[in-house]
Amino acid sequence: MLELVIFSSLNGVLYGMLLFMLASGLTLIFSMMGVLNFAHASFYMLGAYFGFEISRRIGFWPGFVVAPLLVGAVGALVERYGLRQVHRHGHVAELLFTFGLAFVIEELVQMFWGKLPVDYRVPASLDFTAFTLFQTTYPAYRMFMLLVAVGMFVFLLAILTRTRVGLIIQAALTHPNTVAMLGHDVPRIFMMVFGVGSALAGLAGVIAGPALVTQPSMAALLGPILFVVVVVGGLGSLPGAFVASLLIGLIQTFAVAINLSLSDIFGSGGAAIFGDLWQATVAQLAPVIPYLLLVLILIFRPTGLMGTRET
């Protein structure tokens, strides 16, 4: 039991931090555009594929550094030459643009790397056991992922709250006009935020690629969970995104590990009414739990846990 709690907590926090690497960028971008960027998870996928391509040519570590920068550059270009033009036509156009972009990226990835998963592997330098607890081993690569995610979190927090650029970004998200009147180039700031947000998603992809599966559907698999995170946390709230990322990460990981069903708790009596659902274990229901949470949050607390705007 203790073993399950420790490992599920570790994995839950890891998954949560990975979600936050995406949710943080998505939240910042939402604050400035006013719409959700449907293509955000696609930048995560691009990160994984760029990382794979570079690692296969010159090694994992160069990819770890270069791939996120490349994805950030792609993001900045998309903002500068795509979204900024579409912005004039309103929110619906922006939303549709990001929606289309997600498909474009998915199709391009399939064209270049095929429909099957690619062989993106954990580098040899991190391919060992970090520790063994109750005869279960925990891979060093996962500890590395956790370290990168936590490091990124500290870095983002420091930039946003401790530097002048961070102050300008914070102010520009809520009062773009006033900030422009003070002589700051707001469109350039927005391009930078979009680029950095995309780069963070790319970084998440680079480190998640070897641990999960690098395949063309990886964006579509993660995207919906990401939206659950930002809505549950509260659209536009960075602390909210952080709490919700960890919450969803832990819920998902624990749910998968729990093999209890309603009949185990209340006896087999309910089976007559609920049928198979009564026998279903929490683990079997795990995939639906985040979406259930999303629906409940929207009904009972539409601003999310820590948000201030109506969704």
């Binding site: 002048r164 102050l167 914070q170 006033t178 900030v179 003070l182």
Partner: peptide, 12 residues
């Protein structure tokens, strides 16, 4: 900028 301190407002 309501969330920023007086000093931060000035520095902006």
């Amino acid at each position: 900028f309501p969330g920023l301190t007086v000093r931060q407002n000035l520095l902006l």
